[in-house]
Amino acid sequence: MRPHIGDLLRGVKRTFGEVIVPSLTDPFAVEQATFMALVLEHIVARWDQAEEFHRVENTELRQALSEAVERLRSASQERPDVRSLLEAISRRVDEEDAAGHLPRTPETVAQANVALKEYLSKLLECIEDGTGADGASETRRVVHACHAYMKRQLEREREWVRIGEFNW
């Protein structure tokens, strides 16, 4: 069926830019309209990529956390705080693995990602001082892997905001 969402968004953006904005005279309204045009530009370009964007982040987060659990399991024997955190992470990742097969809205996946990122940050805070001499090299590897994920995600986000980017 036409028009589909992309048709509608492009049409609204066109009308907004060619009819509404030129008719405005109040400076504050003009400013707001300019921001709205940026929002529309972004939505037109990204609305059908949002699911993939959040899903990729979800997959990478689960991978990074699973790897951390595997690597640190034995090294964390002397650190009960790390051990219990790893158990909690493991449970959360398992839940997420199961949910990953179900249809979910981009917002639901994004919300799940927030929880996974909180675990990632907690883990880094916990292990940055080390997990004991025996686990030093494994800990370094995990920290490195987590930082690598953070940088990959940052690059994706930089690309994501490239359209409609607000240069203040």
Partner: peptide
């Protein structure tokens, strides 16, 4: 808020984070 600028300021964050990655050598 109805200030649309507040929707867009989040788009500045990745640039700030990139500067932090560089400063902290992550």
């Amino acid at each position: 808020t109805t200030h649309t600028m507040l929707a867009m300021v989040g788009f500045m964050v990745p640039r700030l984070l990139a500067d932090l990655v560089s400063q902290l050598d992550l």
